[in-house]
Design a protein around this nucleic acid. Structure first.
Lengths: 146, 146
DNA sequence: CTGGATGCAAACTCTTTGCATGCAT
DNA sequence: ATGCATGCAAAGAGTTTGCATCCAG
């Protein structure tokens, strides 16, 4: 099993893109950089706002397309929190998420849970699993105290 | 910790509704019954079709409202598979799901994985967790062989 | 009776698609 | 020069909301 190098810098991204025969554009570099610097869960829209300051004229479809691409490269992760918009975060460490059913807040959760059993169960069924996402839902501290 | 009785029959549902001071309507009974009998993951739309045969004139908003209610009662479970529509299944045994990234198929997965660690991690953060959902995504057998 | 539940229609949000232009290679 | 990537606009899907009517309690 080949461990894929994680993409961290602009140079990493450029190299990964070239390796796939895809183009290095300023939009891709800036979106990637913004995602990494925000260091939290962001919607495509929030990311667009963050990016527009640095590179005016970027469009939402481009943000979505770039996030798809980054996810493909392992540089971004899509979080389906269920409430409204999709969230994205920079790829990297393995962790799970907590979603508040009331206010929609999403927080990281480090459970130490091992997803290997789940992946293996999928393989046993003939599937080819790529990832396992665990989402805990309930009430966040603020909403619970009301 | 009080184990909530699982709702299985029309009588169970009627009792649970009355206990909450809510009304027992034919729509609620029929939708609940249809969900149980389908024994698979269905969209609100599919459920509407299934129900319309028995009780004409049911509307989609009512299906959604009833599914919300059933979920609240623990008689239904919402599955956020990410691809397009939400899915619902009758409440009952604990299991996880596999979603094909290509064709969107959703299958049950029995991993034996224990979510207690995840729930505990959430509690340690001050949250009040209600459930933990694990979704494995990748390619199903059919899509992988292409 | 009385108010919660329903049906209808429309709004709303987020995401994806089509097409002409532009820029990385 | 070549064709992938982008921007714009619009379509599309799914879910939710508002309001008048209806029926369970």
């Amino acid at each position: 099993m080949l461990a894929k190098m994680s993409i961290q810098t602009d140079a990493d991204l450029s190299a990964a893109l070239r390796a796939r025969g895809q183009r290095v554009t300023s939009q891709r570099l800036v979106i990637h950089r913004a995602l990494r610097e925000l260091e939290r869960h962001v919607t495509a829209d929030e990311l667009l706002s963050a990016v527009s300051g640095r590179l005016p004229g970027v469009s939402l479809p481009t943000v979505y397309a770039t996030l798809d691409l980054l996810e493909d490269l392992g540089a971004a992760r899509r979080i389906n929190a269920g409430g409204g918009a999709l969230l994205y975060e920079a790829g990297g460490d393995e962790h799970q998420h907590f979603v508040c059913e009331r206010c929609g807040r999403v927080e990281d959760l480090h459970t130490g849970l091992n997803a290997r059993a789940a992946l293996q169960a999928a393989r046993n069924r003939g599937f080819e699993p790529h990832r396992a996402d665990l989402v805990v839902s309930g009430l966040c501290a603020d909403c619970a105290s009301r």
